[in-house]
C-alpha cells in the first residue's frame, strides 16, 4: 500500500537506541526512494494530461456552437453537457490524486531524512565514546553501517579534529585540552586507584614509567590513564 515502506522505515528509526543500532536497511531505503520517483513520474503525467485536457475543454467552451445554441436553464450552475461534467470531475479527481501523491512523496522524504539523521546521531555519540577514532568503532556495530555512514563517521571525526586543533592553537598552544575525554563528569581527584584488566605494556606518566600488567593495581594521575579507562583496559576502583 502507498506509504507502507516509509512507515516501516520510520519504525526502524525509532528502534535506534543509545546502545543499539539495527543494520542499515538498504533495501527499504531503495524501495521508498523508488516509490517516490514513481509517484513523481505519475504526478508529472497527470499534470500534463490535465493541461492538455483543459486546453481541449477551453477550446470547447469558446466554440460558438456551444455557448450560443445551447442556453443553460437547469438548476446546475455549470454546463450540464455530460462531456463537460465528466471532464470537470476528472480534473477534480486528478487534482486529488496529484495532492495525494505529492504528500506521499513529502512524507517519504521526511521519513528518509529522519531515518538517516537518527542513525547519524547515534554514530556521533558513539564516536565521542571512542575518542573520535573511527577505527575504534566496534566490529559488531560497523558491520551494521552503510558504507556511506562509515564515510560520515570518518568525516565527522576529521571535522572534530580540525576544530580541536584550531581551539588548542588559540587557547593552549603548549598543552592539550584533552578534548575527547569523557566530558560529563568533572574531575574530583588528581590521583586515582586503577586495576589493570588487560596488559597495556609500559606507559610514560608524569612521574615516570609504569608497567601496566593485567591484574595489578596502581595509584596514578587521572589524566595519564584516562584514555585507557574509557576503552576499558583499566578499571577505576572506588570511584567516589
Amino acid at each position: 500500500m502507498l506509504g507502507d515502506e516509509c512507515f516501516k522505515l520510520a519504525k526502524e528509526a525509532k528502534d535506534v537506541t543509545p546502545d543499539h543500532i539495527p543494520a542499515y536497511n538498504e533495501e527499504l531505503v531503495r524501495l521508498v526512494t523508488q516509490e517516490s520517483r514513481y509517484l513523481w513520474r505519475r504526478v508529472v503525467e497527470l499534470i500534463q494530461a490535465t493541461e492538455s485536457s483543459s486546453q481541449q475543454s477551453s477550446s470547447g467552451v469558446f466554440s460558438p456552437s456551444q455557448s450560443t445554441s445551447k442556453p443553460d436553464l437547469s438548476s446546475q450552475p455549470f454546463s450540464n453537457d455530460p462531456a463537460d461534467v465528466s471532464r470537470s470531475m476528472e480534473s477534480e479527481n486528478m487534482q486529488g490524486q496529484v495532492a495525494l501523491y505529492v504528500h506521499t512523496i513529502e512524507r517519504n522524504k521526511r521519513c528518509l531524512m529522519a531515518y538517516h539523521r537518527k542513525r547519524a546521531e547515534f554514530l556521533q555519540s558513539l564516536l565521542w565514546a571512542v575518542h573520535l577514532a573511527p577505527t575504534m568503532v566496534p566490529q559488531n556495530v560497523s558491520q551494521r553501517l552503510a558504507p556511506e555512514e562509515q564515510n560520515y563517521a570518518r568525516e565527522y571525526a576529521k571535522l572534530n579534529m580540525k576544530y580541536r586543533d584550531s581551539v588548542e592553537a588559540t587557547l593552549c598552544p603548549n598543552d592539550s585540552l584533552d578534548w575527547a575525554l569523557n566530558g560529563e563528569v568533572p574531575p574530583r581527584d588528581l590521583l586515582i586507584e586503577v586495576r589493570v584488566h588487560r596488559d597495556c605494556g609500559e606507559i610514560v606518566t608524569q612521574s615516570g614509567i609504569v608497567n601496566l600488567q593485567a591484574g595489578t593495581q596502581h595509584y596514578l594521575c587521572r589524566s595519564d590513564v584516562e584514555h585507557l579507562l574509557t576503552i576499558g583496559y583499566l578499571e577505576h576502583i572506588n570511584p567516589t
Binding site: 531505503v29 526512494t33 520517483r37 528518509l112 547519524a120 555512514e149
Partner: peptide, 10 residues
C-alpha cells in the same frame, strides 16, 4: 550524507 544516501535518486 543525505544526498549520497538517497536524495540524489530523488
Amino acid at each position: 550524507h543525505v544526498r549520497k544516501s538517497f536524495l540524489d535518486q530523488f
